[in-house]
C-alpha cells in the first residue's frame, strides 16, 4: 500500500482553519520542520496545537505563533518562547498546560483505543479543576486519580528518521520522544522522513510505528535540526 505524497504542501493540503493538530518532537528535537513550514505558507489559522513544547521565537511552532495562526496550545512546557509568553499573558492565545506524562498517555490512549486514562498527576492542583476523581488501590496504596480523555486530533504530524512507502517508521535516538504517540493519535497521520525507503528495507522487528497508523509519508528536505542548549565538554 503506497502512501507516498509528493511533498509537505501536498501532505497538509486539506488542513483547514480551526482544526486540531498534534505534532511530535521534544523542544526542537525531532520536530516536523517541513510540515510546519508548509502550514506557515498555507496560512491556516485558529489552529489548536497539541505539542509538548511551543518551539522558540523563530523556529518550530514559534513560526506559527509569530503569524498568529494558533488559537490554542496544549503543552506541558513552554519556557523557551518569549512571544508565546507575551500572547498567553495578554490573553491572545489560549493555553492548556497539562502534565507531560498525561500529555503522552492521552495521545497513546487514542492509538490504543482507550477513551480515558486515570493518572495521579495533578491531583489536588489547578489541573484537577472540573475533572472526575476516583480512588484506586495500586501498588498497595489507595490514592486519588484524575480521569483524562484521549486526544482525537484531526491531523497528527511527525518526523521520523526512516520510513518506508507503507508508512512504517523508525526514529533516531531521542527524536522518538512523543512522536510514536502522536503518530498513533491522528484521524489523518502525516510522516515526513529523512530517508524514504522501499518496503523490505526496514527490519520488521525494528519498526517503532507500524504503517497502519500512518496515512501520508514523504521524503523531507533541508533539515536544520537546531540545538536549543549546546552543552559540551572540552576534549
Amino acid at each position: 500500500m503506497n502512501k507516498t505524497v509528493k511533498n509537505s504542501d501536498e501532505a497538509v493540503k486539506d488542513v483547514k482553519d480551526g482544526m486540531t493538530i498534534a505534532l511530535g518532537g521534544f523542544g526542537l528535537c525531532g520536530i516536523p520542520e517541513n510540515c510546519i513550514s508548509a502550514l506557515v505558507k498555507k496560512n491556516v489559522t485558529r489552529l489548536t496545537c497539541i505539542s509538548n513544547n511551543a518551539g522558540v521565537d523563530d523556529f518550530g511552532l514559534g513560526l506559527l505563533l509569530h503569524k498568529k495562526q494558533i488559537k490554542k496550545m496544549i503543552s506541558s512546557y513552554v519556557g523557551e518562547n518569549a512571544e508565546f509568553e507575551r500572547q498567553m499573558l495578554s490573553g491572545e492565545l489560549e493555553v492548556d498546560l497539562i502534565p507531560q506524562g498525561t500529555l503522552a498517555t492521552r495521545l497513546m490512549a487514542a492509538g490504543y483505543g482507550m477513551p480515558v486514562i486515570y493518572t495521579p498527576a495533578g491531583v489536588g492542583t489547578e489541573v484537577a479543576v472540573g475533572k472526575e476523581v476516583r480512588k484506586f488501590k495500586y501498588l498497595g496504596v489507595e490514592k486519588e486519580y484524575l480521569m483524562e480523555y484521549a486526544f482525537e486530533p484531526d491531523f497528527a504530524i511527525v518526523k521520523a528518521w526512516k520510513g518506508d512507502t507503507q508508512g512504517n517508521l523508525v526514529f533516531r535516538l531521542t527524536t522518538r520522544n512523543f512522536s510514536p504517540l502522536v503518530a498513533m493519535s491522528g484521524k489523518v497521520t502525516i510522516a515526513e522522513v529523512e530517508q524514504l525507503v522501499e518496503p523490505g528495507e526496514l527490519e520488521p522487528d525494528q519498526i517503532h510505528v507500524p504503517g497502519i497508523y500512518v496515512h501520508r509519508i514523504f521524503q523531507g528536505s533541508g533539515y536544520q535540526k537546531r540545538i536549543e542548549q549546546r552543552t559540551v565538554r572540552k576534549k
Binding site: S76, G79, L89, P99, Q100, A121, T125, V127
Partner: peptide, 14 residues
C-alpha cells in the same frame, strides 16, 4: 512566569 509543569506533576504524584 508561566513556563509549565513539564514532567514535575507526574514525578511528584508517583
Amino acid at each position: 512566569m508561566v513556563k509549565g509543569m513539564g514532567g514535575a506533576m507526574d514525578l511528584v504524584a508517583s
